[in-house]
């Protein structure tokens, strides 16, 4: 979530897509996974793609794209806590910066389909007396269901590469990702997990002035659970960084709850 550039009255309360939009997004995803070299249909991004992103060479030999293995820190019940830095209008003479306390709790993780979901809570949001909670759904970049190219939510390969490159560990994958149209053969043995989290609706605090139009690009250390994210919303503050670490539930160690849906 982020501070909205619009008034609270204009801010959308939910980003639940209409059926047609959902279908378009699904088509985009399928095209994205089909390895199409051009930006997916319906992409409304106006941001210029980087030169390397435009020139996409097809690998000459067939490549097998493996998914990353399941990650312990994405299991249901895992809590992350940290802060989100929100910098308003970096072009203004006196840019204003806010730091919100943010936590996220994973409620569902399905590595087989590259899906993760949970709730995010932001506290110490200016003008909000109580925390704001949203429900998010995440795509895990797994080479199978989700690639590094987003293809919807108003992001295009140029936007994607721009954000992914902000993560230091991504730099060693960068050339491969471009060469393989968003997939990455080395991903399965890479020590970081890459995700996109898209907030879907407000669970609490829907009257706030925040918007959930955009989404997070995230990179998580598989061993420590430390996570960094960058928020992308073409209509909102450009500089927003999320930093969270895995909270261990135990007093002196890690504790893991679990549920099984019937």
């Amino acid at each position: 979530m982020t501070a909205s550039l619009r008034s609270a009255a204009e801010a959308p309360r939910s980003t639940q897509p209409l059926r047609g939009q959902q279908q378009a997004a699904d088509i985009n995803r399928r095209q994205r996974l089909s390895g199409a070299a051009s930006p997916p249909a319906g992409d409304t991004c106006t941001e210029p793609a980087t030169a390397t992103c435009e020139v996409v060479q097809c690998p000459s030999t067939p490549v097998r794209y493996f998914s990353p293995p399941p990650c312990a820190f994405l299991r249901p019940g895992q809590v992350f806590a940290g802060r989100q830095r929100v910098a308003h209008s970096s072009h203004s003479p006196a840019p204003k910066q806010e730091n919100w306390s943010v936590s996220a709790t994973i409620t569902q993780y399905d590595p087989a389909s590259g899906y993760v979901a949970g709730c995010m809570e932001a506290s110490h949001v200016p003008d909000m007396p109580s925390p704001v909670t949203t429900f998010f759904e995440g795509e895990i970049i797994d080479n199978q269901h989700n690639t590094f190219f987003t293809a919807d939510w108003e992001a295009c390969p140029g936007t994607d590469i721009l954000h992914w490159r902000k993560f230091e560990p991504f730099r060693e994958l960068y050339a491969e990702v471009v060469r393989h149209h968003g997939r990455c053969p080395s991903l399965a043995s890479h020590p970081y997990v890459y995700m996109r989290w898209k907030e879907q609706f407000f669970v609490q605090g829907s009257e706030c002035h925040l918007t959930i139009q955009g989404f997070y690009y995230l990179c998580m250390n598989r061993v420590t659970g430390a996570m960094t994210g960058f928020y992308f919303d073409p209509s909102s503050s450009p500089d927003q960084k999320l930093e969270m670490s895995a909270v261990r539930a135990g007093l002196a160690g890690f504790a893991f709850p679990h549920y099984e849906l019937a």
Binding site: G250, L251, A252, G253, F254, A255, F256, P257, H258
Partner: peptide, 18 residues
């Protein structure tokens, strides 16, 4: 799996529980 996490959760607490 669940039996082992019974132990994991117990051992995440105080020295007495460990």
């Amino acid at each position: 799996h669940h039996a082992l996490y019974v132990v994991v959760n117990m051992a995440s607490s105080t020295a007495a529980h460990k």
